[in-house]
């Protein structure tokens, strides 16, 4: 039998205990290393972004030949807006992007909710499969989809492009929404159910409003991916379903003109706006949930 240990004894021991703290040692070396790393980083950025800057600059070049600067002009942008083929391709791209984004956002969100909230047999393999479209090369996915459409005797056209884009976008939406759900406090859903909301009302009034920034971010990402996809679209497109990237490719075959530079610049701008918006949505509105 041990002698009774009382709280008083513990209290005394705690008072007697000496606290040992150590100061972190300051680093003197590494200043040069850090400068070298900064330079390295800078070079990396130049390598990545210089071609883009050149592309944008030359889209304002008054010369037909893309190599020498002959003064500022907006002519190429004007030509772009009157080009019927480019207009038709833009419409196709928007149809494909809008439809595939809408469908994949809904399906992707449902997948994310299902994976995050429920346990079911075969969840792990399903989880792995879900990430597959993100990691496998576009070209493999393109060939696979083309084979699928040929075997199932579907005529290639806008429809097959839309289906293909949904196929890869679901994964991206699901990943983004799941990241949001990981921070979601389940007791909020329990609180809703405790306050007489059934499963559907809980989803509509509590879960969806709180994960909405994630859903929107996923949707925007899907839209961006869809509108500038080339490889998969190239394989699954049919006559009359030329999208903007396919049109640009067709134009480049006849030589790189400032018109293409202008078109690419505009796509670049649109993509950047969408990605930025998606980032803002993903970051914003999160404080409330983490607090709760």
């Amino acid at each position: 039998m041990q002698p009774t240990r009382t709280r008083a004894i513990e209290k005394i021991k705690a008072m007697k205990a000496v606290k040992g703290t150590r100061r972190p040692r300051r680093r003197r070396r590494g200043r040069w290393l850090s400068r070298l790393l900064s330079l390295h980083g800078l070079l990396g950025y130049i390598f990545l972004y210089l071609p883009i800057v050149i592309l944008v600059v030359f889209s304002f070049n008054a010369s037909r030949h893309a190599v020498a600067w002959r003064g500022f002009t907006l002519d190429w942008y004007a030509a772009l807006f009157t080009n019927k083929q480019v207009g038709a391709a833009l419409v196709n791209s928007l149809i494909v992007a809008a439809t595939s984004t809408a469908v994949s956002t809904i399906l992707g969100t449902m997948v994310a909710l299902g994976m995050e909230r429920y346990e079911f047999p075969g969840k792990l393999p399903f989880d792995a499969l879900l990430y597959l479209p993100i990691v496998i090369p576009d070209i493999a996915m393109a060939v696979m989809l083309l084979l699928f459409f040929v075997l199932s005797r579907m005529g290639l056209g806008l429809m097959t492009i839309v289906i293909s884009h949904i196929a890869f976008n679901i994964s991206f939406v699901a990943v983004v929404v799941r990241a949001r759900l990981a921070f979601f406090d389940v007791s909020l859903e329990e609180a809703a159910q405790d306050l007489y909301a059934d499963e559907w009302q809980t989803l509509r009034r509590v879960t969806l409003p709180l994960i909405m920034p994630g859903v929107l971010a996923g949707g925007l990402l899907a839209f961006t991916l869809s509108i500038d996809d080339f490889v998969i679209t190239f394989f699954t497109a049919g006559p009359g379903s030329t999208t903007l990237p396919l049109r640009i490719y067709g134009m480049v075959k006849l030589g790189v003109t400032p018109e293409i530079n202008a078109l690419s610049s505009m796509m670049l701008l649109a993509s950047m706006v969408l990605v930025l918006l998606s980032l803002v949505l993903r970051k914003g509105g999160g404080e409330g949930i983490e607090l709760a």
């Binding site: 007791s187 909020l188 329990e190 609180a191 159910q193 007489y196 509590v206 409003p209 409330g288 709760a292």
Partner: peptide
Amino acid sequence: TPPYQRPVNTVFQNYALFPH
């Protein structure tokens, strides 16, 4: 019987107030 059909209400440890 699911929670939303029981005549009880809960005060949660972390309060679980709806932040939105």
